[in-house]
Design a protein around this nucleic acid. Structure first.
Lengths: 340, 340
DNA sequence: CTGAAAGCGCTAACAC
DNA sequence: GTGTTAGCGCTTTCAG
């Protein structure tokens, strides 16, 4: 592990000259520079970022924080994975590494800010956090911790956020379904995730409001957990007194589980009901019928989070609120209201 | 950002006492300890890991290195995502954070070891690297860089690895297909990825050898890239003179693309051909027919990589070679050989 | 143009 | 039991 001192010895200069060469600053005679650069190459010297960080106060690392990223490692990660892709891509472009910080504890016990306090990262991107405890929000504000939240709108003036315009998409979905003759709507959610997952919460709320404005109601079918969507939500649907013909699902994976469950009871889509999801994940393209859905520019959102965070680290103080549109992805899961 | 000194001032002791309390070592009078602990809580003091790392020489962070993790951010990440899940879970359990390090450059230009050289991490887990340039292997060996490779078998005595027993699964698949009467086999690969992706390479090689031992041949159908599998491999298959009835696909996502492509030409599975994949990803369960596949214990492999790496960091010097079995996941994509 | 000194926050070794 | 000194590798004054 070569240090600046080793390089300096080899090049016959003092270590401070090495520092200048490495950081491209100060006046260094070209030939001195050349000698130093050669020594750097020979010794495969890399600046020790721990030491740089200790000195300069920043690490060029950003933290991606989520309390539940991997609690279903094999299933519902299309969403977070795509965001992570965007974060990682833009970070790499700009020379920043990404540290992943997760936790499996109950919400309250999860210290979202740990890696920042430890000075492992300079700023934080929160994903899928649901509610941030007020105490931690206060701390973010009082200490000026650079935080950008993905996929939720945070009231605190200290926290910037990036979100999608879910309500627009929900309105679009309802228009399409109404045009097909549907009048009985249900929202497919997950109990544990609905108060946890801001996307589900926003979509459900938007559906209720938009339908109410049209004089229509919204039944809510919530499985106890995302994982049970294929088992429980179909049962709940079948047990209901009146059966909605138009289903808006919190996301695609819940929708696909639901469709599979109903198929086992002989209910087919779009013959017996229509359904639309969110995320436009690849599984929905493979399913028969294909699942109508709303694609979110997740990679672009991850990239925007990095840009926003680095602006903040660069000195920008204003809160940033940025929304992205969703795009309808047609599918065979939408059809005319069944006669009955 | 409170430091040990701040805590010390508040508790009326010297900073070294704070250090002792934080690290639970040395003799500290219980009441002194209590006062210090209170000051720590009041000031929300966290040890600065940069400084600790500089001093102790380690960071309690490990690097997950892949040169191509996100170059198809939206599609073929079930595999890497699951490995990452295992790495992250086990790391968290043991108090280690995970730094993601990727690159989009051509292989040769990618400096796999950068984050280690920079002392941002203590050890590295490589995923999906294909070939590691000999020069970097030499450096790993000569500098004793702690590296564990996931999903490939590295000859270098300096590098431990974790892999699956692909050949066993290929043999099992061939047995099943032969039992169904199939005699004409093809391997579905990806040109760009075959010499890149050790899994594809191993599976193709195993298929060739096992079939040769039975006196059977293997046609190879390789799309130019993973992304083109749904466009190009069906064309290549249809253009071939004799059509294999038994297809072994490098992984599930290529298989699903292939099936969709052939369906457009009126060829149906399992009526016209049988196909088996690898990874057992959720999309294959959703597809009709369901895709027979081989599940890999990816999360467990990621966990094993962390354990192996930490053993190494703890002083273990022996190279570790560990293999995991694959498990057959039945599917409707296997059927008797078509009469023709 | 180059070097010497100080200090980032922390821990290890050695006093008292 | 507690404090002092030195130093991890680097950058930032300030000198020469």
């Amino acid at each position: 592990m070569a240090t600046q001192k080793d390089v300096a010895d080899r090049a016959g200069v003092s270590f401070i000259t090495v520092s200048r060469v490495v950081n491209h600053l100060g006046n260094v005679k070209p030939e001195t520079r050349a000698r130093v650069e050669e020594a750097i190459r020979e010794l495969r010297y890399y600046p020790n970022r721990q030491a740089q960080a200790l000195n300069q106060g920043f690490t060029r690392t950003l933290g991606l924080v989520t309390p539940r990223m991997f609690d279903r490692p094999l299933f519902d990660n299309f969403y977070v994975m795509s965001l992570l892709s965007g974060v990682e891509m833009r970070g790499r472009e700009l020379g920043w590494d990404v540290l992943i910080s997760t936790d499996y504890d109950r919400r309250g016990a999860f210290d979202f800010l740990r890696v920042w306090h430890q000075r492992k990262v300079d700023g934080l991107i929160f994903v899928g956090l649901g509610e941030i405890p007020p105490q931690q929000l206060d701390e973010i504000a009082s200490k000026g911790i650079p935080v950008v939240v993905l996929s939720d709108r945070i009231a605190s003036p200290a926290v910037s956020w990036i979100d999608t315009r879910s309500a627009e998409a929900v309105a679009d979905a309802i228009d399409r379904l109404v045009a097909l003759g549907h009048r009985e709507f249900a929202f497919l959610g997950v109990t544990a995730d609905t108060d946890y997952n801001p996307n589900f919460r926003d979509r459900q709320r938007a559906a209720r409001e938009i339908l109410a404005a049209k004089g229509l109601g919204l039944e809510v079918i919530s499985a106890p957990a995302m994982f049970d969507a294929g088992e429980e939500t179909p049962k709940l649907y079948l047990a209901g007194s009146r059966k909605a013909t138009a289903i808006i699902s919190g996301n695609d994976s819940v929708a696909l589980g639901f469709m599979a469950g109903l198929a086992r009871s002989g209910l087919e889509c779009p013959r017996d009901y229509s359904i639309v999801g969110f995320d436009a994940e690849p599984s929905g393209r493979i399913h028969r019928p294909t699942l109508a859905s709303y694609a979110q520019p997740l990679v672009a959102m991850g990239q925007a989070a990095v840009t926003t965070l680095l602006d903040r680290l660069g000195g920008a103080r204003e809160k940033v609120e940025r929304t992205f549109p969703l795009e309808f992805v047609p599918g065979g899961s939408l059809g005319p209201v069944p006669r009955r």
